[in-house]
Amino acid sequence: MPQRKQPTLALPTEAEVSDPAARASAHSTRHLTTRQKRVFAGLALLLLAALALFLTWDVNGHWDFALPRRSEQVVALTVVGIAIATSTVVFQTLTANRILTPSIMGFDALYVLVATALVFLLGSATVARIDPLVMFAANTVLMMGCATALYRWILGNGERGLYTLILVGVVAGTFFSSLTNFMFRTMDPNEFDSLMSTLFASFNAIDTTLLGIGGAMLMVGIVAVFRMAGKLDVLSLGRERAITLGLDYHRTVTWLLLIIALLVSVSTALVGPITFLGLLVANLAYQLTRTHRHVINLAVASLVAIVALVAGQAILEHVLDHNGTLGSIINVVGGLYFIGLLLKEARS
């Protein structure tokens, strides 16, 4: 698998192939280091192991029942893993730090708020007549508009400090949750009921009706991000250098925020909010790859996320016998890691 992956990641340009001197001097940027090849190989092995474990454990001969159901779960976990990893890496480059994630800044909470407000305003009778896929699409479009406008304004010129952003994010997240709760309380019980079935997806109750459209949206987001990978690399030098190098900063940030909102919508619709997964996988990826190149970091972070989710879910279902949820485990581990990162940052 890593051998197959390598050429697409490090395709030399025609000029490099035809010019040996250029090829020699290009080695530092266009090709994978030995370390990165090992990382890809290791993660591919881990992924295969996790998949084998998840798909074949304890089937007891009921293949025709277990396999389709489990495969669907794997696809959902993959979509969620890629969406969370990608949105986090992009957001961290945008905000020039490794602590903030879309979840910590309240993106998930905003999605839940938008979904709730839509049911609240339209009424459950109307909502019941609308195709869930259309509802999801409407949610996502609204979310992309709100999130981009709001966070564009919050991020400003990229000159606000890290702690200001964390504070604003925590306040925004709490505010969105409170508004959502307020609507729950004032809502008609029937409407509340219909909301619960769509909103409260989790790892144990993945909303698979949205898997098709969610997967399609993910593809759109991923293609867009990989097309912008070069711009993301430039952006990682900081706002001022990016502008000096001719990047249209304002436009690029707006596009990236739209993509992040799209990806957060996909993962939140499928499994609900998971606060700290992105933080864990993004930082693990940076430590593994030790590069600034987004093509590599995005791929590794996504692989780490898929491995973590599939292996975690397998262990949870078969070893721990459903005693606990993957979301809560991720939040405990990730929460501790988040506090650790904050303390480290405060000391340096």
Partner: peptide
């Protein structure tokens, strides 16, 4: 904060 080498930094100048 990006982890880059001197050569990679200078290559950014060609962006």
């Amino acid at each position: 904060t990006a982890r880059i080498t001197v050569q990679e930094l200078v290559e950014f100048g060609r962006y």
